[in-house]
């Protein structure tokens, strides 16, 4: 996990286009159980990102010839709404969306205990309502909470965070401008308690040392988001264990 900074190391005082420091996340909020009809659901707001994840299942898989005899199939769909970007995006699944669906599915498959449900399938739907950079890692974070909310057994939560390089500085949680104009970005997803990396992609160029620094920074950000994930789940349980007045207004 993230190492402590050495004292004699120079602290980067670079101020980013949106006024953040190099190791600062955008304001974040995760809420679980937001949709009534889905089996499990969650929402994440990370800066300008607003992503909703919903889970259905486990249920019978169709078509039958695809079923796997010893484990469940995890289907995943990452989709950006037409109004999620500044210019209208065609609702048709693009090459990028199909790729992201695959990497998200691969990341989540590591955690979900699929052996418990032979011949079944679990569907994860991720809708990006508003996009502002680093949506793939935010999607994984939200989908993991939605899976936990649906009562699907998991080995550990999955949490993602990104780091990158902008104007020669290593930065945490790449935003939209930094993503477009920056030199490199590095999204990662981890299982914090099992200490495993389940997603690691990189775009652009970084030296070996810059990569190490960016990776450590992304781990640090992921741990902050992990705390928020647990809080989102704890909030549901706490609301279920306090008896308060005004739950049912029988007189109205």
């Amino acid at each position: 996990m993230p190492k402590k900074e050495k004292k004699n190391e120079k602290v980067d005082e670079f101020i980013r286009p949106d006024g953040r420091k190099y190791d600062e996340l955008r304001p974040y909020k995760i809420r679980a159980h937001i949709l009534k009809n889905a089996d499990g659901s969650a929402e994440i707001r990370l800066g300008g990102n607003w992503i909703i994840a919903a889970v259905y299942g486990p249920k019978e898989h169709f078509p039958k010839f695809e079923i796997s005899q010893d484990r469940a199939i995890l289907n995943c769909r990452y989709h950006m709404n037409p109004y999620s970007t500044s210019e209208r995006k065609s609702p048709k699944p693009s090459r990028r969306e199909i790729e992201l669906s695959k990497v998200i599915r691969n990341a989540l498959t590591q955690s979900v205990i699929l052996d418990d449900f032979p011949e079944m399938s679990i569907d994860v739907f991720i809708e990006v309502a508003q996009a502002e950079g680093s949506t793939r890692v935010a999607s994984i974070t939200a989908a993991s909470v939605a899976l936990a909310d649906a009562g699907i057994p998991m080995r550990d939560m999955v949490v993602g965070c990104s780091a990158g390089k902008y104007n020669g500085h290593i930065i945490l949680d790449v935003g939209e401008i930094e993503d477009k104009e920056g030199e490199a970005d590095l999204p990662i997803a981890i299982m914090p308690n099992l200490r495993k990396v389940v997603l690691l992609q990189m775009d652009g160029k970084m030296t070996h040392e810059e990569f190490k620094k960016a990776f450590d920074l992304a781990l640090k950000g992921a741990m902050q988001l992990y705390e928020e994930q647990l809080n989102a789940l704890k909030n549901i349980l706490e609301s279920m264990s306090t008896l308060g007045e005004g739950e049912i207004n029988e007189k109205k």
Partner: peptide, 17 residues
């Protein structure tokens, strides 16, 4: 049976009490 055992100790696989 919903609790896994590994090097971390006893770890639940579901949300609950």
């Amino acid at each position: 049976e919903k609790i896994i055992r590994d090097a971390r100790g006893y770890v639940p696989s579901l949300v609950g009490v």
